[in-house]
Computed example of a mutant assay.
Amino acid sequence: MDDLEQLKYPIGRFTPPENVSAAQLEKYINDIRYLPASVELAVQKLDQHQLETPYRPGGWTINQVVHHLADSHMNALTRFKWALTEDNPTIKPYEEQLWAELPDVKKTPINVSITLLFALHTRWVNLLDNLTEEQWARTYTHPANKTTPTLKVVAANYSWHSRHHLAHIENLIERNNW
């Protein structure tokens, strides 16, 4: 893996699991459960200049990463709810890069998105902790990547997504000795 690839994908690219055991599912849920506290701890001592530093050349700033996590995970909870209440719904993708450049991302302090992550993840984990095997097997269709994942695979993806972006923040802090 070259240096830029390592900066982009510090924990590697997401690979959907073929089978998800109960232990793996519990790990995925815990990754989602603890993300808000992990992000809060990672950024708590950073100043505004540090928060405006991209985690890699051409990448998002820490501010953008934190706001992206809130945006992405709001969409994730909605996608779970669609899959649980509709028969294999087609979800609506969104332009993540464009969302990261909107005025709310530039003008809103990250503590607002961290607070949102705490509330959002509490709701999301309360849902995940109480799904039946039948519910975990439900699916949605993602039209952009033409997949129909089960909710177990979606949980794996958001576990990875949480750890992926946390690693962007933590690795930047470590590289710069902040």
Rank of each mutant, 00 (worst) to 15 (best):
R56W: 01
R56K: 00
R56E: 03
R56G: 06
R56I: 02
R56L: 05
R56V: 04
R56S: 01
P57E: 05
P57L: 01
G58W: 04
G58M: 02
G58V: 00
G58D: 00
G59V: 01
G59L: 04
G59P: 05
G59E: 02
W60D: 01
W60C: 00
W60I: 06
W60Y: 11
W60R: 03
T61I: 09
T61N: 10
T61Y: 13
T61F: 13
T61Q: 11
T61W: 12
I62F: 07
I62D: 07
I62K: 08
N63R: 15
N63V: 14
N63C: 13
Q64G: 06
Q64E: 14
Q64V: 00
Q64Y: 12
Q64C: 10
Q64N: 09
V65E: 03
V65Q: 07
V65K: 09
V65H: 11
V65G: 04
V65A: 05
V65R: 01
V65C: 11
V66W: 12
V66A: 11
V66R: 12
V66Q: 11
H67P: 08
H67C: 11
H67I: 03
H67V: 07
H68N: 10
H68Y: 08
H68R: 09
H68D: 02
H68A: 05
H68L: 09
L69S: 09
L69M: 14
L69W: 11
L69E: 05
L69T: 06
A70Y: 15
A70N: 15
A70I: 05
A70T: 12
D71Y: 09
D71Q: 08
D71A: 04
D71I: 00
D71K: 07
S72W: 10
S72L: 07
S72K: 04
S72P: 07
S72M: 10
S72D: 11
H73A: 06
H73Y: 12
H73R: 09
H73M: 07
H73S: 05
H73E: 13
H73P: 02
H73W: 10
M74Y: 12
M74H: 14
M74Q: 13
M74L: 14
N75G: 13
N75F: 06
N75C: 08
N75I: 02
A76L: 03
A76F: 03
L77E: 07
L77A: 01
L77F: 13
L77P: 03
L77H: 07
L77N: 04
L77M: 07
T78H: 13
T78W: 14
T78N: 14
T78V: 10
T78A: 09
T78F: 13
T78Y: 13
T78P: 02
R79D: 06
R79M: 08
R79G: 05
R79C: 06
R79S: 09
R79A: 04
F80A: 01
F80L: 13
F80G: 00
F80M: 08
F80S: 01
F80P: 05
F80E: 00
K81G: 01
K81Y: 09
K81P: 03
K81C: 03
W82E: 14
W82K: 15
W82P: 02
W82Q: 15
W82S: 15
A83G: 15
A83D: 03
A83F: 08
L84H: 11
L84I: 09
L84Q: 06
L84W: 10
L84T: 04
L84N: 09
T85D: 15
